[in-house]
Amino acid sequence: MVFGSFTPEAFAFGFFTILTLGGAYGVAMNTNLVRGAVWLIVSLFGVAGFLALLSAGFLAAVQVLVYIGAIGILFTFAVMLTRSMTNVNQRFNQQWWISLLVSALLFILLIVGVIIPVWGNQSPADMSPTIANTTDLGVALVTGGGFVLPFEVASLLLTAAIIGAILIAREDEE
């Protein structure tokens, strides 16, 4: 990205940054859990914008479909299961300092990773000249030399998720 000149991409990048970070701030600071869920969706939408900006259209659509359309709804359902959802004053979590430490460490690690090329020096010239599209993704998913094993394992994982959900939700009726 070129700094100094005002490109539409830079503008969009700034806009999505505000959405993502602002949404995350709203989630963390809201005492009303449902509003928190709405802020979460704003934040997730910002991430979808980033993906579109990176020309990863499929992932952007998936972000909207799965995270906003499904996980957002699931969060709202989950919030409705709690008591006092509109006014959370107590802090139930006693280990907040651990999470603070971990997130601070992660943040520092990411900053370092961005400034110093820890994961190898990749300039834009090193990137493949062909832009892979969604068809290439499909080919990679189901060819023997590609990612067919992770593809099937993903299915197994999803199956396990359903079994787990049913076991947890219906234990009271045994």
Partner: peptide, 15 residues
């Protein structure tokens, strides 16, 4: 879960 399944099946159907 089925939504995520769909996400995997779309590239499969495409290719």
């Amino acid at each position: 879960v089925f939504d995520v399944e769909m996400v995997f099946l779309f590239p499969w159907a495409l290719a």
